[in-house]
Design a binder for these strands. Sequence first.
DNA 1: AAGTTATATATGCTGGCAGTTATATTAGCG
DNA 2: CGCTAATATAACTGCCAGCATATATAACTT
Lengths: 110, 110
Amino acid sequence: MQSTFEVVAEPTRRRILDLLLTGERAVGDLVAELAMSQPAVSRHLRVLRDAGLVAPRTDAQRRLYRLDARPLAAVDEWLEPYRRLWAGRLDSLAQHLDEMTDDLERKDAR
Amino acid sequence: MQSTFEVVAEPTRRRILDLLLTGERAVGDLVAELAMSQPAVSRHLRVLRDAGLVAPRTDAQRRLYRLDARPLAAVDEWLEPYRRLWAGRLDSLAQHLDEMTDDLERKDAR
DNA sequence: AAGTTATATATGCTGGCAGTTATATTAGCG
DNA sequence: CGCTAATATAACTGCCAGCATATATAACTT
């Protein structure tokens, strides 16, 4: 099994996720929008499914895939310490403190 | 040339970036911390350099590499529309509005 | 039940990536 | 100037990812 990073590194797979942002789609629809064979798309969907990033729903012969963004939180978390490095330096400390406050609130909410 | 996504998908390269978070390091230091041959590490550094994620500074025979996180902003931006999907739904709209306000402020600052 | 539609899996090919060892390069040192 | 140290590049190898074609599976249609 691949990490979320590797799964999302593939351009076509990112494209698929972007398409699913607007709502669920059948495999055929995706094939039409990506210039690629149906098996290739099904394979990418398999990888995305194994990573927990998409989930299929049966509708007659079609499989409608919907997005599940939760695994992407891992990427976001890895990015966290870098974020304040590319942001303006002066307000980075304030931003950091804001984020920590957010974290605490989130923990309280659970 | 690889995209920032692909560059960062490689676990060893992420590890290198993580190590550089605490400050610049010589190649030899990195080799010591990663269980890997020196040429392998130099190769990863080449990829990271080409991606603009690290930059070397000469110190006698050694090359000290420092982090440059700016290219990671592209990853962060791609992540943006997904972020509110894994966040709690109820406050996601407010969060979205906050982010848009931040964007405006950032534009003003430029 | 046979035919059709929609998707998944099998198979084979190919290119590129990450690792190794060997060698080149560059800088300091006696 | 020869020698050592530190890093980069070259050459080779094994492997895996992504693609296409061919085939299997599943569901609907008549």
